[in-house]
Design a protein around this nucleic acid. Structure first.
Lengths: 138, 138
DNA sequence: TTGACAAGTTAGGCCCGGCTAACTATATTC
DNA sequence: GAATATAGTTAGCCGGGCCTAACTTGTCAA
């Protein structure tokens, strides 16, 4: 419900990111794969993707493959970039296990954006260059 | 919609935190004040608070003041603690202006919890003790 | 004390994001 | 090429969270 900076909800952002990942990993994104990735039913995906098509983020043909529009790709890339940075922070710097780090990155990526994100990113980069991680892991 | 670790939605968590703050600042939380704090209408607050009462987080009497139950207070305190830590991080360490730091803390507090939160907290504490903040502000 | 204003509630509507059940379309396999 | 299995869609439901409009309750001042 609550809108993100992008104008989409965090759930809609999750769909975009998932579709982007699938098109990279498997060349193509299909309804069923999206459903599995997001842990929802295929009927739910149909509705969500139709709506994202109406507002211009995905290309959608009935019973066909789902692809992102240009603005869809742009947003998905940003999300993925943020996801990766948060994963790196929680996994490599704070030392959380992969699954946990990924989960928390999944949530965080929607909420830390813009200038706060950029500052955070610069801090993380600084860390990587200058500090021994284990120092912060207990 | 999406449930947090607490079993509540992030919006419900916001209500609890707001009620807690108001009871501290003004001794008492009233419908109108909650509405103003959360930027919603009073009718919306009525519904939300009734539901929170049903599930045991607030004490609610019609046309009376709203207070938190014991579990409500417990959760609200956790939220406030997280909020304050994230505010400290974004404001004091990353150097964002107050309003921006507060907004991003408001969002983040719902999503970084449990072990990830504790590790993050330890990192921030470490920062405060050992590092000159300005170093990370550009 | 009563009349006006402020505060709170109820009713009803809308959207999002889930679900199931039933249907249709596509693929596969014989 | 027909039968079956799989994938995708549609319809209809529910709950949360917001709104407005209309009503009720409470408060305060003349």
């Amino acid at each position: 419900m609550t809108e993100m900076i992008s104008g989409l909800t965090s759930v809609q952002e999750d769909y975009l990111e998932t579709i982007y990942r699938l098109t990279i990993e498997r060349k193509v994104a299909r309804n069923k794969e999206i459903a599995e990735a997001l842990n929802v039913k295929t009927a739910t995906v149909t509705g969500a993707v139709q709506h994202l098509a109406e507002i211009g983020y995905v290309n959608y043909e009935s019973h066909g493959y789902v692809t992102l529009t240009d603005i869809g790709v742009k947003l998905a890339k940003e999300l993925l970039e943020r996801h990766q940075l948060f994963y790196l922070f929680f996994h490599d710097i704070l030392g959380l296990e992969e699954k946990v780090a990924d989960e928390v990155a999944c949530r965080t990526e929607h909420h830390i954006t813009g200038e706060p994100y950029r500052r955070f990113r610069d801090l993380v980069t600084h860390f990587q260059n200058c500090t021994h991680p284990s120092k912060y892991q207990r």
